[in-house]
């Protein structure tokens, strides 16, 4: 197991290097000049000379190959460069926002897992009964309703019923749990609902599949209680595809809360990504893409390790 983890971790390096190279060149194909947007978008009288001076200051006047060399050298030494928009280090820009997106993603995942696994199981066990129908309606609603729209409804609901909105600004959960949770529970619920719907559907279909297996029939034939059959034999096996979905959804959420973060005024990675793309802040986009690629690789590794834990037949080596 340890060897597998080390091998997979080592594979992360060429994967991220490949991503870095591809992103570096691909985003430079995009038209648009961050310096012009930065200095002229508000209508200021800025001369071409000033534009060129700022371009030079940011190193954008250098040939692309030189910029690439600088970028790769920085990357190898752990320096992601500086944001072309703020001049702040990319690592710092990301570090400020990352805890918000991470916490919302974790909370949404927890909401999804705690709702979806029991509901998906009930739905499969009571297949084609009113229980199954109610759960399926809920799941389909969750899939059909966009998270941001639900978020807007939540905000309007809070305003209409309580004339209240959570305070703007991130406070760490360790510093002030009440303020933290009162601000982040709403976006977590709005994206967690859709997330739960996906996992519920997956849990139901995976469990139905497993329930048709010979070993389930054998267990029943041996006289094992239905609840024990489900808990000990069925759920554990049905969880394999569910874990994959949970992992992928989680990784997606970290960088994918774009609209939800805007609806709830959250200062997260998704909002930063949109801002960086709109402005043409290449260095920041590169850093963000690398971060998200690293999260996907890491989450996949964790999912693989969980496979072995859930199903001892899977040998990771």
């Amino acid at each position: 197991m340890l060897g597998f983890i080390i091998r997979r971790l080592l594979l992360v390096i060429p994967t991220l290097l490949g991503v870095a190279v591809a992103v570096f060149f691909l985003i430079r194909v995009m038209p648009g000049d961050v310096v012009v947007v930065k200095l002229r978008a508000d209508g200021a009288q800025v001369t071409e000379e000033t534009i060129q001076a700022e371009r030079k200051r940011l190193g954008l006047d250098k040939p692309m190959i030189v910029q690439f060399k600088d970028y790769m050298v920085g990357l190898v030494t752990g320096d992601l460069g500086k944001s072309l928009w703020t001049g702040e280090s990319v690592a710092k820009e990301i570090a400020v926002r990352f805890p918000v997106s991470l916490q919302v993603s974790i909370m949404a995942s927890l909401i999804a897992v705690f709702i979806a696994v029991p509901l998906g199981t009930l739905s499969a066990v009571y297949r084609d009964t009113w229980i199954d129908n109610v759960i399926r309606v809920m799941a389909v609603s969750g899939l059909a309703i966009p998270g941001f729209w639900l978020g807007m409804l939540i905000i309007l609901g809070l305003l209409a019923f309580f004339n209240w909105l959570p305070k703007i600004g991130y406070v760490s959960i360790f510093e002030d749990p009440v303020t933290n949770l009162s601000a982040l529970i709403w976006p977590a619920l709005s994206v967690g609902f859709r997330y739960a719907a996906v996992v519920t559907r997956m849990m139901r279909s995976a469990l139905l599949e497993v329930m048709r297996e010979d070993y389930i029939r054998t267990a029943r034939a041996k006289g094992v209680y239905q609840s024990l059959v489900i808990r000990r034999h069925a759920i554990r096996n049905a969880l394999l595809p569910v874990v994959t979905v949970i992992g992928l959804e989680f990784a997606f959420l970290i960088g994918g809360l774009v609209v939800t973060e805007q609806v709830f005024n959250l200062n997260g990675i998704g909002k930063l990504f949109v801002d960086a793309s709109t402005r043409g802040d290449f260095t920041l986009i590169q850093g963000l893409v690398l971060l998200i690629a690293a999260i996907f690789v890491l989450v996949n590794l964790i999912v693989d390790v969980l496979y072995a834990f859930l199903d001892p037949r899977i040998r990771l080596n």
Binding site: I155, L156, N163, W164, L165, P166, I168
Partner: peptide
């Protein structure tokens, strides 16, 4: 708009 109504600012 919602921020002003909701007392966020």
């Amino acid at each position: 708009a919602t921020g002003i109504i909701g007392g966020q600012f």
